[in-house]
Design a protein around this nucleic acid. Structure first.
Lengths: 211, 211
DNA sequence: AACTAACTTGACGCATGTGTCAAGTACGTT
DNA sequence: AACGTACTTGACACATGCGTCAAGTTAGTT
């Protein structure tokens, strides 16, 4: 690898981090190249596909932030608190960083490293869930597959209200969390998603193109 | 107005109803023209803008369906039930009909007739809310402006899971509704949206274009 | 049946974004 | 310092979608 090529990769990586964070993983590749100060041909020749660029850049970003979420959760007083703080913090990440939002909701499929990072974090969520179940604080019919319902709801709410009422996803989430306490439970109208359904829903490639 | 022009308007209207319902209010105008069997130039000369077409076509659609929601709500046994059934039915409309989803979440702004229809339905929602408040069944800190949080969450969930687990928005909503009962209430982290914020959030023109 | 105004057409220009490739540039080796 | 290869460039082709308009067509009046 020649030095100039190496330098370009670094410039592209840095620009990608910035733009992904500002605008989400679907931002125009041309802009990334422009901000990096190279032609977009270079970007294609270095990374080939958007997915490859994402997978080269975002996992680190995600890992750092998701680690912070775990830390935040650990400060919880009891099992419920930890569960709630975990969900809140992930939601906060989703609402503050479009890149994280797209990562966690699995907007792009061919990003194995990124997926691994996110899966790992979800595993932690599952532990908090289990602990809260065992403590009898989280309603028993909440399953690991329900996380996606929480996160996609928050993602939508924060997108809708970001411009006018930035924090209000917290309000929506608080309503839902109150419904997740064991004491609030009423029978649910439909069963949980199967793990496969949840995985598919996660890999649902946004840009709805209801076409 | 010449007869052929009249006929074309009818063909366009019919095609628009179909495509809006299938794909949402943002479907390509060219396709509507194609399905109507006219050139897209005709569509532009008859309606001028997408908003004008929407406002000519969707209010009727919305009115019918929203009326059904009211009817569905009325069947509830008590004030809570009516409130819940109202929210559920609106959510169902959102999840089954992309046109309704875009209408209710106010995806396009310059559609006065459509807005009026939606506002009217929201007013009914407010009445159910009030009754449920008065009966002490709905948590006191839920405000009219919180409806948007509910609906945008459902819209997102049903978009995410429509392909794999069509009914699961009901599950997410059920969690939240359980959190809206007076008995489930815990203090909220942030205050309600102001009416202005809610209005802005509603008029938030989707197609996020986080640009 | 001729005429005119209303109407329709489809090609055009515009903008955004993806992905490719021949030609030109520059690295670093000899 | 000359050379070959790795690398970069920017124009190109492609696709989608919006919006316009001169030219052609048709309705319906005289």
């Amino acid at each position: 690898m020649r030095k100039d090529a190496q330098r370009n990769i670094e410039k592209l990586t840095a620009a990608a981090v910035e733009l992904f964070t500002e605008r989400g993983l679907d931002c125009p590749l041309d802009e990334i190249a422009r901000r990096a100060g190279v032609s977009h041909g270079t970007l294609y020749s270095r990374f080939g596909t958007r997915e490859a660029l994402i997978d080269a850049v975002v996992p680190q970003l995600a890992e750092d932030q998701l680690a912070a979420a775990i830390q935040h959760a650990e400060a919880g007083a009891d099992a419920w608190d930890q569960f709630a703080r975990y969900v809140e913090k992930i939601s906060e990440l989703i609402s503050c960083d479009p890149a994280l939002s797209d990562a966690i909701t699995r907007r792009y499929a061919d990003t194995p490293r990124l997926s691994a990072v996110c899966d790992e974090s979800l595993d932690r969520g599952r532990e908090y869930m289990k602990a809260a179940h065992d403590a009898g604080l989280l309603r028993a019919d909440f399953t690991a597959e329900d996380f996606i319902l929480l996160f996609s709801a928050t993602a939508a709410t924060s997108r809708t209200t970001a411009a006018t009422a930035p924090g209000s996803w917290r309000r929506g989430l608080a309503f839902t969390l109150d419904g997740l306490r064991a004491t609030a439970a009423h029978p649910l109208p439909v069963g949980p998603l199967s793990p496969e359904q949840a995985a598919d829903a996660m890999h649902y490639n946004a840009n709805p193109s209801r076409t």
